[in-house]
Nucleic acid binder design. Structure first.
Length: 834
DNA sequence: AGCACGCCGACT
DNA sequence: GTCGGCGTGCTC
C-alpha cells in the first residue's frame, strides 16, 4: 500500500496564493489558496468569498497575489470570485492600508466602513432535511415537529423555521438534529445588492425596417387587437422614422397600461416572434431634468474664483474663507465645472445635515445626471449604484458625506471640503476614527488633485496652515448682493436676573423682540444646543437627582414622552411621580433644553406657531425635510433648535436669532471650546437677515458680556479670534503645533481600569517623556455602559515622526493587553482626536 | 467581530 | 449529578 505524502510540494510557478482583507477586526491579512481555474481571472481588488473559522463565510478583498505558501498552516481555498473586474481600485487599497496605519486600527475595520453594506455578502445558514435519515425513533417530539416542516420545504433559514414552528428554541433543536444526522446545515451566500430591473418590449430584429412593419400591420388586419398593440408601440417608439430606436424598446407596463385585453394580444405577438421582451438595469436616481442652468458670478465671486485657480497653480490646498451669505456655492460650481471640463472627477464633501438642504437641489439643477449623491439616508442599493456609477464613468461628480471619501475615484481633479471646520467630519465611534478632511487631502495627494477647503469660520489648524503659506488663502468677506451682516447684541442675563426681568429662561429684551417679530409676521430662530426638556431632575427636599444606572451622567427629562433618558447608553426610565429617595413631591427640573424652551414659549405666546428641530423631532425619515419646508412656507413663527439649525439653512424671512447658554459653550472644559463657541454662534447668527431689505438681529444671552470671544463675535472678527487662540495653542503645545492621540482605557472594574492606565502611562513615558504623555485622566463622563474610563493624551510635536511613535504606542498597548489579568481591558486609540 | 471551548455556581 | 454563566483564544 502506498502512503500518501504528508506534505505537499508546491510548484512555484503554478500554485497561487492570495492575501485577503477580511472585514473583521484582525490586524493582518489572511492567506488563501487560489483554485487553479480561478488563477486567470483573479485580480487584486476583486471581492471573493472565503470560508473563515468554523461555519462562517465572508466577502473579502484581494490585497496581494503571490507564490509563497504559508509555512505554519494549510491555507484554505477561496470559494468564489465575485468580480471579474476589481471593484476596489489600487488607490483605494493604498488608502485602506494607509488609514489602518495612520489611525491605528485594523484594515478590516476600514474595509467594513468603506464598502456600502450592499457590496458585502450576507451568509445565511439554511437547514435542509437529510433524505438519507431513517431513524425517526430517535427523535424527541420537538425535533419531529421541526423535521416535519423541513420535509415540506426544500430548505429553510432559522428565522423561517422559527416562524413556522412558533417560539421554541430553534437553534438548539437544529443542533441536536444535526448531531443525529437528520438535517444538513449549509450556507447560502448571496449578494445583497439587487439592481433595479425593468422589463421592456421591442420588435424583433426582422421588423426593424419600414417595409416589414407596414407588412406586419397589413397582415394583422384580421386581428384588430394585435394591430392596436403594434400601433400603440409605434406611437411611443417611432420605429418607422428611426429603426434604431427599437433597440431601446418600451416599458412593458406602458404598453399594458389601460386594458387587460392588450396583454393577451401582446402575449400572442411575443409568441409569434413579432415582439420580444428583455430586461434592463435602470438607475434608481431619476435622470429627469436636463441640466445646465447658467450660473452667473458677481464680480467679487469671479475674482475669488480666479484667485483660487491661481493659488492652485502653486499650492495643492487652498482655503476659501468666505463669510455666510457671500456666495461660496457659486464659486464652487464654477470650479467644479472647470475641473469636469478638464476631464477629471470631482468630490464635494458636505457635513451630513447640510446635505439634505437647498445646496443639493441647486447642484442637481446645474449638473443633472452627471452628479451622484452619497448620503446615509439613502438605501444600500442606491449607494451601490453611486459606487458602480463612478466605476462606469456615469458619475464624474459626487456630492457626499464623510464616508464618500471611500468611493472608487481614480482620477480626481478637485475635492471640495465645505464647512471644513465641522467636527462631524471626524468619525467618532467605530474604528477607523478618521477625519474626512484630512483623508481627502491624502487622496488628493495621491491622485494629484487639488483640495479646496471652505468655511466662514475655519478651524484654527487650517487657518494657521494658510497663514504660514502651506495652504493658499482666498477671502470672500462681503455678503452677496446688498445683504447686510446682522446686528449682534449681547443681553446681560445677570443684570436682568437682579432686576427680576427674566421670565424663565427668556430675557425681557428677547421677549420684546420676539413679540415685535410676531407682529411684523417675520420669523425667528432660537438656538439652544441641548435637546430634551431639562438635563436632570432634582428633589428639593433631599439630594436626589436623576442618574443613569449604567453611566456616570444625569438622566435627561423628556417631557413629551414622559421619560428620563440617558444620552450615552439610551437607558430609559419612566418619570417618577414623587422623589424615589424620600417620596417628596417637590421634584424640579434643573437646566433647560429645546423642549423646555418650546414649552415655555408657547405659554408666553399662545398664538405663535412654534416648531422644534432637534434629534428627537427629526428621527423619522422625512421629518427633517418636513420641518424645513413648513418653516420655509411661512407656517411657523418661531423655530427652536439645536446645532442642527445652524447648517446650510437659508431662509429669507428670518430677522431674529436668539442664542441661549452661550456661556456653557464657552466654558466647556476643553481646549477647543472657545473656537467652537465662536464657530457655532457665528454660524447660527448667519441665519438672520439673509435679505437686502432689512438688517437682521441676533440676541445672545450671557451672564458675562465682557468675554473676549463674544466681543469677537460682535465685531465678526475671525482673525482677532485666531490671533488669540493660536497663542494659547502654542503655549500649551496643542494642535496645530502638535498632533494628539487619545487613548481611552475601559474596564468594568474601576481599579483594573485605573491600574492598566497607570501602567500604560508609565510605559509610554519611558520613551516619550512626561511632557508628551498626559494622564491618566478621568474623562468628563467617567462611566459609560457600566465600564470605567480613563484617558491618556499623547502630544507629538509636528517635528517628530508620528509613524515611529505610533508603532511604539501600539507595541506598548499590545504588551499591556498580553498581561494576564488585563485581558478584559479595552484600549481605544483616537488619532487626531477632536 | 463571532464562535467554540472550558471551567465554576444553582437547578432537575 | 447537569445547564449555563461569560472569560480566553483563534480565525488563513
Amino acid at each position: 500500500m502506498q502512503a500518501l505524502p504528508l506534505t505537499f510540494t508546491f510548484d512555484e510557478e503554478t500554485t497561487y496564493f492570495a492575501d485577503l482583507i477580511i472585514p473583521v477586526p484582525i490586524p493582518k491579512l489572511f492567506t488563501y489558496r487560489v483554485p487553479r481555474d480561478m488563477v486567470e481571472r483573479l485580480k487584486v481588488g476583486a471581492r471573493v468569498i472565503v470560508p473563515f473559522g468554523k461555519n462562517r463565510v465572508y466577502t473579502a478583498v484581494v490585497g496581494r497575489i503571490h507564490h509563497q505558501p504559508p509555512s505554519t498552516y494549510q491555507a484554505k481555498y477561496i470559494l468564489e470570485l465575485l468580480d471579474e473586474y476589481p471593484l476596489i481600485t489600487a488607490y483605494q487599497l493604498e488608502l485602506f492600508e494607509w488609514m489602518a496605519e495612520y489611525y491605528l486600527c485594523n484594515i478590516g475595520d476600514v474595509l467594513n466602513v468603506a464598502l456600502p453594506s450592499g457590496l458585502k455578502i450576507t451568509s445565511q445558514s439554511k437547514v435542509q432535511f437529510n433524505p438519507d435519515f431513517d431513524y425517526p425513533e430517535l427523535l424527541t417530539e420537538e425535533e419531529e415537529r421541526l423535521l416535519a416542516e423541513l420535509k415540506k420545504h426544500s430548505a429553510l433559514s432559522y428565522e423561517e423555521l422559527g416562524r413556522l414552528v412558533g417560539e421554541t428554541n430553534v437553534p438548539t433543536t437544529i443542533k441536536s438534529l444535526v448531531g443525529k444526522r437528520a438535517v444538513i446545515v449549509f450556507d447560502e451566500v448571496r449578494e445583497k445588492y439587487v439592481p433595479k430591473m425593468v422589463r421592456k418590449v421591442r420588435l424583433t430584429e426582422r421588423y426593424e425596417n419600414r417595409e416589414q412593419i407596414l407588412n406586419l400591420i397589413n397582415g394583422l388586419e384580421k386581428s384588430p387587437k394585435q394591430q392596436e398593440v403594434v400601433m400603440k408601440y409605434l406611437s411611443y417608439v417611432p420605429v418607422l422614422n428611426n429603426p434604431v430606436l427599437n433597440r431601446k424598446g418600451l416599458d412593458k407596463t406602458v404598453l399594458n397600461q389601460d386594458d387587460e385585453v392588450s396583454q393577451s394580444s401582446l402575449q400572442t405577438l411575443i409568441k409569434n416572434q413579432v415582439f420580444e421582451t428583455f430586461e434592463v438595469i435602470v438607475p434608481r436616481f431619476g435622470d429627469d431634468d436636463r441640466p445646465n442652468v447658467e450660473v452667473k458670478l458677481t464680480e467679487i465671486q469671479q475674482r475669488a474664483c480666479n484667485q483660487v485657480l491661481s493659488e492652485f497653480a502653486e499650492k495643492d490646498i487652498v482655503l476659501l474663507h468666505g463669510i455666510t451669505g457671500s456666495g461660496k456655492t457659486e464659486v464652487y460650481i464654477n470650479l467644479i465645472q472647470h475641473a469636469l471640463e478638464s476631464g477629471s472627477q470631482v468630490l464635494y464633501l458636505l457635513p451630513e445635515i447640510a446635505l439634505t438642504t437647498q445646496i443639493v437641489v441647486r447642484l442637481k439643477k446645474v449638473f443633472g445626471d452627471k452628479m451622484g449623491i452619497y448620503h446615509s439616508k439613502f438605501s444600500d442599493n442606491e449607494r451601490v449604484e453611486v459606487w458602480k456609477g463612478i466605476v462606469s464613468g456615469q458619475y464624474q461628480f459626487v456630492v457626499g458625506v464623510r464616508s464618500s471619501i471611500f468611493l472608487p475615484f481614480d482620477n480626481l481633479g478637485l475635492i471640495i471640503v465645505d464647512e471644513e471646520h465641522e467636527t462631524s467630519y471626524k468619525q467618532h465611534d467605530p474604528a477607523p476614527r478618521y477625519h474626512a478632511r484630512d483623508v481627502a487631502m491624502m487622496i488628493a495627494y495621491w491622485q494629484k488633485a487639488k483640495v479646496l477647503l471652505g468655511s466662514a469660520t475655519p478651524s484654527i489648524e487650517t487657518y494657521y496652515h494658510a497663514q504660514q503659506g502651506r495652504y493658499g488663502l482666498v477671502e470672500l468677506l462681503e455678503r452677496y448682493g446688498d445683504a447686510m451682516l446682522p446686528d449682534i447684541v449681547l443681553v446681560n442675563t445677570r443684570i436682568e436676573k437682579q432686576q427680576r426681568k427674566m421670565k424663565n429662561e427668556f430675557s425681557s429684551v428677547l421677549l420684546e423682540h420676539l413679540q415685535q417679530n410676531l407682529e411684523r409676521k417675520e420669523q425667528s430662530i432660537l438656538f439652544q444646543n441641548r435637546r430634551g426638556y431639562s438635563p436632570y431632575l432634582q428633589c428639593e427636599d433631599c439630594e436626589w437627582t436623576s442618574r443613569c444606572p449604567n453611566c456616570d451622567v444625569s438622566l435627561t427629562y423628556h417631557m413629551r414622552d414622559a421619560e428620563l433618558r440617558c444620552h450615552y447608553c439610551g437607558h430609559k426610565d419612566p418619570v417618577p411621580k414623587s422623589c424615589p429617595a424620600c417620596g417628596s413631591f417637590k421634584v424640579r427640573t434643573i437646566g433647560f433644553g429645546t423642549e423646555k424652551l418650546e414649552d415655555q414659549l408657547q405659554i408666553v405666546f399662545p398664538e405663535a406657531r412654534i416648531l422644534r428641530m432637534d434629534l428627537d423631532t427629526t428621527r423619522a425619515k422625512n421629518a427633517y425635510q418636513q420641518i424645513i419646508s413648513e418653516f420655509e412656507g411661512g407656517n411657523v413663527d418661531i423655530l427652536v433648535g439645536t446645532q442642527m439649525i445652524s447648517k446650510g439653512l437659508d431662509f429669507g424671512n428670518v430677522s431674529l436669532v436668539g442664542i441661549f447658554d452661550a456661556d456653557r459653550m464657552i466654558h466647556y472644559p476643553e481646549f477647543r471650546a472657545v473656537e467652537r463657541a465662536f464657530q457655532m454662534i457665528t454660524q447660527v447668527s448667519g441665519r438672520a437677515g439673509r435679505r437686502a431689505d432689512r438688517r437682521g438681529k441676533v440676541l445672545i444671552q450671557t451672564s458675562n458680556p465682557q468675554q473676549a470671544v463674544l466681543l469677537k463675535v460682535l465685531e465678526n472678527d475671525y482673525k482677532g479670534l485666531f490671533e488669540e487662540e493660536i497663542v494659547e495653542r502654542q503655549n500649551f503645545n496643542y494642535p496645530p503645533f502638535s498632533r494628539l492621540i487619545k487613548l481611552t482605557i475601559r474596564h468594568s472594574e474601576q481599579s483594573v481600569s485605573l491600574q492598566a492606565s497607570q501602567r500604560l502611562v508609565a510605559q509610554l513615558t519611558e520613551k516619550l517623556g512626561d511632557a508628551r504623555v498626559l494622564g491618566p485622566e478621568v474623562p468628563l463622563v467617567e462611566r459609560i455602559r457600566n465600564q470605567f474610563l480613563y484617558t491618556i493624551l499623547i502630544k507629538l510635536e509636528r517635528s517628530i515622526s508620528p509613524k515611529a511613535a505610533k508603532v511604539f504606542i501600539l507595541d506598548k498597548i499590545n504588551e499591556l493587553l498580553s498581561d494576564k489579568g488585563l485581558k478584559a481591558v479595552t484600549v481605544v486609540a483616537d488619532v487626531d482626536c477632536l
